[in-house]
Every structure is written in structure tokens, then in C-alpha cells.
């Protein structure tokens, strides 16, 4: 079953007089529960594509279905609600909320995005913190954590709402290679545990080898799709 269906998808940016075709008519399907990476040189359109899948940006043409919803027609509020219900985000710079503790950061989507009851919330947050190995750091502030720890918390935050899909644009770019591997391993084990679909982009050849399906983007087009025999 496909979680994401893209056909003839494109995105054109207007930079002054010239139109930049960041994504040029790409079509692909991503199955539920898969572990997918988009790779390619800088400027090849990885972020642009992930932003469209993540309903942060709308396509210029073509069709994009995410979890059965045509996301190109959503307005600002609808898109926010859709993201809150279906998509978790992991950012290159971790983007934890600095005034909130680890626990509160993971709890945030359950309060401010979804509306969970307090008792249920506590159980869920603790379960996720346990899953990413950050249970004993729950009361620390983000500033007291290492990069790898921050990214673990961010992964817990992305998964806490039981999102169907987690999008990670260069999640390891700010981590050393050992930590990067651990984070990717964590994402993989989370996929096993929660059956969540993970899509990430990377420059790093060692990281891209971890993906089960790897799309290579060049100049906004998919040049190559590689599947790891599992």
C-alpha cells in the first residue's frame, strides 16, 4: 500500500526574472513502513521535495497524495492540522524549544497540536523517551544535551503523536559520523517498533547506504532508484 503517490510533480521558484525549476516532473510511490532516502548534490531539490511531501510547500504542477489526501489544495490552517495529525519532523538543527525541558518538548505536540488527556500524555511521552533512550534525561533543558541526544529527543517528538510519516531533511548533517549512524539506527528501530514510514535526505554516502530505497535527485529529476535487497 502506498503512503505517498507523486505523479508529474514539479516546483518552480520565481527568482527575479528567471524561473528556477527546483523539481521537474517527478513521479514515485512510497509504501507504508518503508525507509527511504533522497540523495543528490546540493541544489538538486531534496529539501524542496521533502517540503512538498511535508505539506510545508505546495506543488506548482502534478499531483501529490499523502495518506490519501491531495495535499496541494490545503490552506495554511488545514495544512497545519494535516501535518499535526500525520507527519512528524526531524530537523537538521534539532529545533527543540529551548525554554522547555526534554519531557516538555516531547509533550508539546500532544498539548499544542493534538489534545491529549494528561494521564495518557504522560504514558506516551515516557514510552517514547524510553524508546529513544532519553528517559533519564527527561528534566534537562536542550542546552544541556549533546547533538546526538537532541536529535533523539527530536525523533521522540516526531513520533509521539503516532505520526504515519516522519520526514527528516539532513538529520545527521550536524552530527559526527558515529552519532549519525546511531541516529539512523534509532530511526530504523523506531520504524520496526511503530511501523512508521521514514523519509530522509542526506549528502552522506555512508548514511544513504542505510536506506532501503534510495532516490537520487539531479537537477530536480529522479535519476536513479535503488532498492536494497532485504
Amino acid at each position: 500500500m502506498s503512503l505517498i503517490e507523486a505523479s508529474g510533480l514539479c516546483k518552480t521558484y520565481q527568482a527575479g526574472d528567471i524561473a528556477v525549476k527546483a523539481i521537474n516532473e517527478v513521479s514515485f510511490n512510497i509504501d507504508v513502513g518503508s525507509f527511504v532516502s533522497f540523495v543528490g548534490p546540493s541544489g538538486s531539490g531534496k529539501s524542496t521535495l521533502l517540503n512538498m511531501i511535508g505539506c510545508l510547500d505546495s506543488p506548482s504542477c502534478g499531483q501529490l497524495l499523502v495518506a490519501g489526501t491531495d495535499v496541494s489544495s490545503l490552506n495554511q490552517k488545514q495544512a497545519a492540522i494535516f501535518r499535526g495529525e500525520n507527519i512528524g519532523f526531524v530537523f537538521q538543527d534539532f529545533n527543540l524549544i529551548p525554554v522547555l525541558t526534554v519531557y516538555e518538548n516531547v509533550e508539546y505536540p500532544l498539548i499544542m497540536v493534538q489534545n491529549w488527556a494528561a494521564a495518557k500524555r504522560r504514558k506516551q511521552v515516557m514510552e517514547l523517551l524510553d524508546a529513544v533512550g532519553m528517559k533519564d534525561q527527561a528534566n534537562k533543558l536542550p542546552s544541556q544535551l549533546s547533538g546526538g541526544q537532541k536529535q533523539r529527543v527530536a525523533i521522540a517528538r516526531a513520533l509521539v503523536t503516532n505520526a504515519k510519516l516522519v520526514l527528516a531533511d539532513e538529520p545527521t548533517a550536524n552530527l559526527d559520523s558515529m552519532t549519525a549512524h546511531r541516529v539512523i539506527d534509532l530511526m530504523k528501530s523506531m520504524r520496526e517498533k511503530f511501523d512508521t514510514t521514514f523519509i530522509f535526505s542526506t549528502h552522506d554516502p555512508k548514511i544513504m547506504a542505510e536506506a532501503e530505497v534510495t532516490y537520487t535527485l539531479v537537477d530536480g529529476s529522479i535519476e536513479n532508484k535503488e532498492e536494497l535487497a532485504s
Partner: peptide
Amino acid sequence: INEIGTIAAIGTIPSR
């Protein structure tokens, strides 16, 4: 701004 981008991306609706 960056923080606003984060909470908006993860689904905080504008009115909130």
C-alpha cells in the same frame, strides 16, 4: 523566527 517555524511545521495552528 526559527522557533516559530518549528512549531508551525510540526502542526501548531496559526491561531494558537
